[in-house]
Design a protein around this nucleic acid. Structure first.
Lengths: 215, 215
DNA sequence: TGTATAATTAATTATGTTATTAAATAAAAA
DNA sequence: TTTTTATTTAATAACATAATTAATTATACA
């Protein structure tokens, strides 16, 4: 990479290419403001390069966003599809599922915003997502469905559907991250206090869900 | 109102002013796509009027959005602040709180999207919100806090904070509405099936939360 | 009816944005 | 070193959008 003028010196590991630097800057901005409110001009400004260079590497803003979205949507979707060990109790499986997803979100707190913002505003992206995930969700779903049925018959959990359980896990896990700017603003929490809240909320989500399973 | 050309004849109740029609069209678009992806030109196109007319009534796109956001954020915030009767059990109060909020969201399913999209992308709006709500959230909060403490001391519920309970209610209630486009797309549900899901989810949320309160 | 006022439009300005092109510069290869 | 290729920039085209202005049309009212 030739570019080395206005760049934060800390970021100058020898083998970051300009292409990567652009992608990272784009990722940060897209995660912060979404597609519509991010311009290729601003990406270039942050990278410290000419705006045409952004297009040189990624041709269009759409393709650049695609690269960012693909990568991040992948993380998000995988947070649902992450398999859990087989030889543990149902309760332990559920706990693991919640915690795994929560950890991924904690490490990528803007994921829910990017994901829902884009999929609520761009119908084309929804189609792509469906094509990409294929029938994986369906398979995962019926696997969970049968497992739940077994537990219900054993009397270890109350009657419910796989959809119920999935939605519950998902709802409790994502909402905090979506609401974090609002929450910080109206409560006036410090960043440390908020990190504390995030930490505690993981256990709380597990508690709530495991209790809610009981017959 | 003079304007009556391209307008859907069903919408021609005698006393809708052009100003109102513009506001309604704007509301629909802002709820559907958010601020950035909505143009005053498109609002005008839908109303069937000249684009300058939108500015004639509302001066700027910002002011028009303000009008829409104010109204809708009000609904959303009130879904939290809705008071409940005093002479019922704690459990009944919680149930009522969940259901009241859920009903408001069910009647205004795009509220969470508008609210979070805007507040995640526009820091200025966060400040306004904080100023507007003032210390109402704090008051409500400490009221709930003391009520919860009482219940914990009585041994009727497990230890938890008001923040915990609020976040749980809120998380379970909003997530379904935020996720609805994604959910519909990847499951391929019909609208009827989805309405059914929404219906059942209200009771489910109550069940989950009430169970999760138990010591 | 005629006049003042309100509502509406056509035309235009100003601005920002994406995308392209041609030229300049740096790196790699010969 | 020279030549070729890759990277980067300056300039600008093409377009959309928000906002303004002056002119036109409709409404109210004297």
């Amino acid at each position: 990479m030739l570019l080395n003028k206005n760049i934060n010196p800390l970021k100058q590991h020898v083998d970051t290419t300009t292409e990567q630097v652009i992608l990272e800057a784009a990722e940060n901005l897209f995660l912060e403001r979404g597609f519509a409110l991010t311009s290729t001009t601003e990406i270039a400004r942050i990278v410290g390069c000419n705006q045409a260079l952004v297009h040189y590497y990624y041709r269009t803003k759409d393709q650049l966003f695609d690269a960012v979205f693909e990568k991040n949507a992948g993380k998000f979707v995988s947070s649902f599809l992450q398999p859990v060990e087989e030889n543990i109790s149902f309760e332990e499986k559920v706990r693991k599922k919640i915690e795994t997803q929560y950890d991924i979100l904690k490490a990528n707190p803007r994921l829910p915003f990017l994901f829902f913002n884009e999929l609520n505003t761009n119908p084309g992206r929804l189609k792509l997502l469906k094509e990409k995930t294929g029938d994986l969700p369906g398979l995962l779903f019926s696997a969970m469905e049968s497992e739940i049925r077994t537990e219900i018959e054993k009397g270890t959990i109350r009657p419910m559907t796989a959809m119920d359980l999935m939605l519950t896990i998902f709802s409790l896990n994502i909402a905090l991250f979506l609401a974090s700017p609002v929450l910080k603003a109206i409560t006036g929490m410090t960043e440390a206090e908020f990190q504390n809240l995030i930490e505690g909320r993981k256990r709380e989500n597990v508690t709530i869900i495991l209790k809610s399973l009981r017959p």
